[in-house]
Design a protein around this nucleic acid. Structure first.
Lengths: 188, 188
DNA sequence: GCGGACCGAATGAACGTTCAGTCTAACGAA
DNA sequence: TTCGTTAGACTGAACGTTCATTCGGTCCGC
C-alpha cells in the first residue's frame, strides 16, 4: 500500500514489494498468482476493513442524524489515518483493474442505512446510490484535502460540512434549537 | 484520452498512441519531450476546457441558486459526454504524476463563486475549499454512476441531488413555492 | 537545394515471472 | 537420542517480453 501510494500501480514493481517485505522476488509467487492477484487481494482486504469501520460507526448514536454524523467523522478519521488506503482506493476504482467489477459498495452498510432513512422518511427520497456516492465523495474529498496539507481542516470545519450534507439530505427542517444568531465559534 | 480511459496510464503505450494518431512512433517526440510531458499537456488542455464550461455555466441564471444548479447540471453533462476526461482526471489526480501540483482547482471560477456566496451570506460559512470538493465530488460521482450503466439516472434524480446539495450549502430556508406534496414522478 | 516534418527499425533498460535448487522443521524408524 | 526422509517455504539469477526513446534517413513544400 505504501509503495502504491507514492509510486502508483505502475511504479510499484514486484522487486520493490519483495524488498520491502524482506523476501525474495520468487516468494511472492507462492502466495499470489501474480501482480494482479496481489492487487485484487489488497482491495478485498481493505474493503473489508472499511466495511467494519462503517458498521461499527453506524451503530453508535441515538438518532439517525447522530449516526450519520458519527459515521462521517469516523470514515474521515479512518482515511486520514490510513492515507495509503485512500489513495489506493481512488486509484483502483478508476483503473482498468476494476472495470467490470460489481460495485461492491452498494452492499455496504451505509447504503442500507440510507435506504432505511428514506423508508422512514427521515431522508429525502433520492436514489440511494447517488446519496452514497455523495457521502463517500465528500468524505474522501475532505480527507484528501487534509492530507494534501494545502488547507488546514479543523474539527469545526469538518462538522460544518457534515452538517451541511445532512441538512441537504434529510427531510427535517433546520434543527429547532441553536437557530439563534449565536456567533459560531470558529476556534479549535 | 480514449486509450487512457480503457487501458490506464500504464497500459497506454506510446506506440498505441502513435497508431491511433496515424503517425509514426518517433513523430510524437517532435511535439512532446516524452510520455510524461504528453500527459501533463493532456491535463492542462482539459483543465482549460473544464474551466471554460464552468465559467459559461456560472454566468447563466438570475439568482445564485439558479446559477449553482445550472452549473451542476452543465458539469454533469460535460462529464457524461466526455467520459474520457472524467476518467483521466480521476486517474491523474490520484497518481504520482500529480503529486506536488499546486491544486489548480482553487483558482477555478467555481471557487470564487462559492467565496462570493459566503461573503454575501447566501452560502453557509464553510471553508470554500471543502465546499468545492463536495460539489466536484458530487458531480463526478453522479457522472460515474451514470456512465457505469449500473444505475439509471434520470434528470429528475439529478435535480434531486443538486437541490439537496444546495439546500445543505445555502443559508436559505427551503424554497417557498413547490413545497406541495405533488407526487414526484419517478418515470423516465 | 534547404529545412523541418515525419518515419520506423533498432536499442537498451526495466519488468513480471520462472525454476532449479537450498534450507528448515517435522516425523518416524532404528 | 540419532539419523534419514520429505514436504514445502523460500531463494535469486536468468529469461523473455515489452516499452519508451533514439536517430539516421526520407519526403515535400518552398
Amino acid at each position: 500500500m505504501a509503495l502504491i501510494r507514492e509510486r502508483g500501480f505502475h511504479g510499484t514493481t514486484m522487486s520493490l514489494v519483495s524488498d520491502l517485505a524482506g523476501v525474495a522476488a520468487g516468494t511472492i509467487y507462492h502466495y499470489f498468482q501474480g501482480k494482479d492477484e496481489l492487487i485484487q487481494a489488497l482491495y478485498a482486504y481493505n474493503s473489508e476493513r472499511l466495511q467494519q469501520v462503517t458498521t461499527e460507526a453506524l451503530s453508535s448514536g441515538a438518532t439517525r442524524r447522530e449516526r450519520f454524523l458519527n459515521t462521517w467523522h469516523r470514515l474521515y478519521d479512518f482515511y486520514v489515518r490510513n492515507e495509503a488506503v485512500l489513495t489506493f482506493f481512488e486509484q483502483y476504482l478508476n483503473s482498468p483493474y476494476n472495470s467490470g467489477q460489481p460495485m461492491g459498495q452498494f452492499r455496504s452498510p451505509l447504503f442500507r442505512f440510507l435506504e432505511e432513512g428514506i423508508a422512514s422518511r427521515e431522508i429525502r427520497s433520492i436514489k440511494p446510490e447517488l446519496l452514497l456516492m455523495l457521502v463517500y465523495g465528500g468524505v474522501s474529498a475532505a480527507a484528501k484535502l487534509k492530507l494534501s496539507g494545502k488547507v488546514k481542516i479543523t474539527d469545526s470545519d469538518l462538522r460544518d460540512v457534515a452538517e451541511a450534507l445532512w441538512t441537504g439530505i434529510s427531510t427535517s427542517k433546520p434543527p429547532k434549537k441553536a437557530r439563534a444568531k449565536k456567533s459560531r465559534i470558529k476556534s479549535t
